[in-house]
């Protein structure tokens, strides 16, 4: 009798592991950038053409860097949360507008001159923010996606929590959920704000 119970026993062990696995997220890959200084860049601001922004400008503050684009469907899902959050004035949020024109399947970016691309980017990004609300302290334009590569962006939206010394402390891949904001990002931000 006993040996005929072996398959059942093995199966039950499997079920236990599957049940534990169900509560894990396989996509939650620890980012190699967490704990490292945020890569430096200097990009033009969306609102003020000709003026640039660099992460060093935020030295001494805890802030969020949020990667977005008007073509990104998940950003649309995340956006209302960011707008509501920014109204509470919790943390400054810097928007990194990522490949606004080149990332859009409907446009052939190669046919555009750099100047045309820049103006189209401004027009599209600006229109999107005025339609859906602007949660950002400021937004910068990463038209060719090079800064995105430095930050290891592989899906938009992504959000980085950066501390006073300019070190990335947390990375959210995909839209920020109310749960992630309440349970991860905000507690960590409070703790970082208390650090000297």
């Amino acid at each position: 009798m006993k040996r005929f119970l072996i398959p059942l026993g093995l199966f039950l062990v499997l079920v236990v592991f599957l049940a534990i696995g169900l509560n894990r997220d396989p996509h939650e890959v620890p980012s190699p950038l967490v704990g490292k200084p945020a890569p430096a860049f200097s990009l033009e601001k969306l609102a003020e053409p000709g003026k640039t922004f660099s992460p060093a400008d935020m030295q001494g503050q805890v802030w969020l860097l949020n990667v977005w684009a008007s073509w990104c469907v998940s950003c649309r899902a995340e956006h209302p949360l960011l707008v509501a959050f920014s109204r509470q004035g919790g943390l400054p949020i810097v928007g990194l507008n990522y490949k606004e024109v080149r990332g859009d399947g409907g446009i052939d970016a190669k046919k555009l001159s750099p100047a045309d691309e820049a103006s189209l980017t401004r027009q599209r990004a600006g229109a999107w923010l005025s339609q859906h609300g602007d949660p950002y302290t400021l937004s910068v334009l990463d038209m060719d996606g090079r800064v995105g590569i430095d930050y290891g962006v592989y899906g938009v939206p992504e959000t980085y929590l950066i501390d006073k010394k300019g070190v990335i402390r947390f990375k959210q891949i995909g839209p920020i959920t109310p749960d992630a904001l309440e349970k991860k990002i905000l507690p960590l931000a409070r703790q970082l704000a208390a650090e000297s």
Partner: peptide
């Protein structure tokens, strides 16, 4: 959770019947 429970019921009861 639903599929896991279903899997456990179907396979678990079959293997019990087998034993």
């Amino acid at each position: 959770i639903f599929i896991l429970v279903f899997l456990a019921v179907v396979v678990g009861s079959s293997l019990t019947l087998f034993a």
